[in-house]
Design a protein around this nucleic acid. Structure first.
Lengths: 209, 209, 209, 209
DNA sequence: CATGAATGAGTCTTCATTCAT
DNA sequence: AATGAATGAAGACTCATTCAT
């Protein structure tokens, strides 16, 4: 599906509003108004509000695809290094595209629309496959344990990052870092989160502490 | 706040629908209809849809309060045992009150209403305090490491459990366990999740693998 | 119709609210709440909101009746003196029972309910009869002109007083008397209004300036 | 503000209904139905019921403005002639736009909405200014008395005309003129009212009877 | 006698979508 | 290709009144 500038503009606005207010909490009027386009354009371009959501998911999922696959094909790294890179990649993505990830959470928790849920599952399945390959490779090379529950491991990655994203303000306040700039805080948080999850993954994947 | 039978009936129905369809995706008509009461009753009893949500949160949070605090006061267990019990407690609660936990996720991801968000934060703060005490106790006794990031640790607990809950069907399908009864699958899942998270916490809290 | 304390309490509250917000702008809930009685009491005591209005009118009209008739029977005064006394009486009543007079205006301008309008017309008819008698008496005695349009004359009395009452604040502001106390301003206004209308009536009734 | 045909149609219908039933006594359903438009159109065009009222006032007030000011600029008449013309002008307007004038009375008696009251006061202030100029001119020329209370005088004009308008049926019945056509009666009433008020004004403004 | 609980009908407003242009 | 105008359906909420107690 090819998207022109105006369509992308609509999608980006919708993404932000869906994240901020939820799908049902956002009206097409709001989207059209904030995107600076005519109200009828959304139906005109996407058919309906729901189709707009699907287009939005498809668009972002498409983006992610490219980045993940290119990362995997590289053979200069060990399985653990690759896992660590995927972790950082995921954290980066989640922090940079917070709106999209919030939508993903919403979609999953409120599994109302099947076709939307399906689009959301695409990413999960792809990620699972990529990681599964890595795990197998690591197990073959004897650096990873047998008996690894892939889904639970991914749930810990995704869940921890999501939970972190959803409670950034709370975390910041709790740690008394309200005076930091958003950028500095984001860097700190990402670093800390990265170390935290990598340690967890090491514990899950290997026999050493 | 004392709630009569009809009010509880409304709240339970609202809880399920809010979880299934989101707050904005649920109409008071739907709630009234499914609860078998007159539409006007919701405004009559709770004032508004939003106040109904607040009453629902307050009600569930009140329940949780009692259970957590009674668990903590017991002194027959080691800090790690207590942490493990809290983990199991949390998993149990999340699996049994899935609707409520889904609402909690929704509330956090779409932080629209301040008073609702506030109610939701109550639980987080209380849990954090309880766990913080446990950690300190364990550190004093020399069984827990220094430098433990409480919030990140809790995010891993809550995030993993939430992510698991949100993708139960996906997990089941992935593991080819569609023929199990819901109860059996739930028992299996809870056991597996419990072991998984306890292992993670051990890695986060102690120096041994 | 005998009214107990609670009924009078309701009527007085209703009078104030009907005057402030109009009949349709006032809910029985508001009345009951501000009167400190149960919501069901209004239907219980008066049958309906509309019947309450009728009772209110009947009550006030009954009060007025007594005062006007006792004033008329006195024979110590000339016709013009009596007219002047009625003018002062009317001004006093309008200023003291502003709420009631505002309701009377509302009822007339929005002639929705026939039975309510009927109650309102009672007062007009009675007043007209009393004044008519006075006029005839004055004409017989040769102090009043022939060809006096009774209704127009009364409209000037009632209309001027009502208009004055409705725009008290505006008048006050226009004359730069915002710093006076309410009581002082009321006294001033009444005096000025009295002189004004008496002069008009003299012009209407007699041949001298 | 430019109004299209449909908007004017809505406004005129609203004007009639607001006059007949009061603002709160008129539902947007009624207006839409009687104007032959969709219910949603009222919100679509005017934003809300209240904004519709404001638009209605603004529209009528705008009309009046032009007529009054053009009348004043004419220099062929004496001050008293001009006052008499303004009286006739006001009577004509009140009888022709009875609905609008009833609304004005309602708005003033039930001073609920500030922005609406403000719009209503506009007319009063403008009229007051125009008359004030006339009075000063007449005083300068020695044909009008000193010490004229402008507001009281206007209250007599407006109040008498309003009271007359509100009790037309009553007046007609009282004078036994139920068999006249509406038009004939209207002409008679206007003539009589005109003479009546002009006489009053002459008494207020000059020293001759 | 008095009232808390309850309700069907009604309120205004917003919704996503369509359609003629 | 794009849009302003328009709308039926649905939204949350309030209303005056009833009725069992």
């Amino acid at each position: 599906m090819d998207l022109n500038d105006k369509q992308i503009q609509i999608i980006i606005t919708a993404e932000r509003l869906f994240a901020e207010r939820g799908f049902d909490g956002t009206s097409v009027r709001d989207i059209a108004h904030e995107a600076g386009v005519n109200i009828a354009m959304i139906s005109y371009y996407f058919g309906s509000k729901e189709k707009l959501m699907e287009a939005l998911l498809e668009w972002r999922v498409g983006e992610i695809k490219i980045r993940v696959e290119s990362l995997i094909k590289d053979n200069r790294y060990t399985p653990l290094e690759k896992v660590n890179m995927l972790i950082d990649e995921h954290i980066d993505r989640a922090m940079q595209k917070q709106s999209f990830h919030k939508i993903m959470v919403s979609v999953q928790v409120t599994n109302k629309n099947p076709s939307i849920l399906k689009a959301a599952n695409k990413v999960k399945v792809r990620n699972a496959k990529v990681i599964a390959e890595l795990i197998k490779d690591g197990q073959k090379k004897g650096v990873f344990k047998k008996n690894i529950d892939l889904i639970l491991m991914l749930n810990t990655l995704v869940g921890t990052v999501n939970q972190n994203m959803m409670s950034l303000d709370y975390y910041r306040e709790f740690n008394g870092q309200m005076d930091m700039t958003d950028e500095s805080f984001q860097i700190v948080i990402k670093k800390r989160l990265s170390i935290h999850i990598k340690k967890l993954f090491k514990a899950m994947l290997t026999n050493e502490s």
